[in-house]
């Protein structure tokens, strides 16, 4: 049997961060996921301990705060897109500004410089990635997918899918299905 689960990634991350930081016995606050503020600079030994503790969970300490911010932008976008009500309620630039406390123009410039791609492009890529997932795993119709990703119409979703992948949603679905039948690993 297959059991479908819904995971709150933000909560998992926050819990892990909190547990590991508490164990370190320092004064800190989690400003946002990916940004931790220490009241006093931790010692080398504490840094080492933290690096080791985080490593198990695939959490890395980033030297470069700009790189960290780019990751934060990506995570915030992913988080927003995973939540149907929020996607339909928020405008992305407002959402990012509220979440990350930087102006949208600053975030936008930083993102483009670091990734060779604009925030807008990344959002499209991410939305199409989610659409693919929904087509394959959730058996949703294009109408339902268009609604949950806040496209104004099925035509708009199909056109953006085609533009992003070069394939129509139905060709994409057929390819993935055939791969599964023949057990081809991508």
């Amino acid at each position: 049997m297959i059991l479908n689960i819904k995971v709150n990634y933000m909560l998992i991350c926050r819990t892990v961060l909190k547990e590991q930081l508490d164990a370190l016995d320092v004064d800190y606050s989690i400003k946002s996921l990916g940004e931790i503020e220490f009241k006093k600079k931790p010692s080398e030994a504490q840094f080492l301990k933290l690096t080791e503790a985080f490593e198990k969970y695939g959490i890395e300490l980033l030297e470069d705060s700009q790189n960290g911010l780019v990751q934060l932008i990506k995570e915030a976008i992913a988080h927003l897109l995973n939540n149907v009500e929020d996607v339909r309620k928020y405008n992305i630039s407002t959402y990012l500004t509220e979440e990350l406390k930087y102006s949208y123009s600053y975030l936008s410039t930083l993102f483009s410089e670091a990734t060779h791609s604009s925030i807008e492009n990344f959002i499209i890529l991410k939305k199409i990635d989610l659409a693919k997932h929904m087509i394959i795993h959730k058996n949703l119709t294009l109408t339902e997918i268009a609604y949950s990703l806040n496209y104004s119409s099925v035509a708009h979703l199909s056109a953006q899918f085609k533009k992003t992948t070069g394939l129509t949603p139905s060709t994409f679905q057929r390819i993935i299905k055939k791969r599964k039948e023949r057990e081809v690993m991508p």
């Binding site: 992913a78 890529l125 990635d129 993935i176």
Partner: peptide
């Protein structure tokens, strides 16, 4: 190259990475 870079650095599902140009 740019798209592959995004797949490399973001949580996009590589299994579904298809592009026709």
């Amino acid at each position: 190259l740019k798209l592959n870079w995004q797949y490399h650095t973001s949580t996009l599902n590589r299994d579904n990475f298809l592009l026709r140009l």
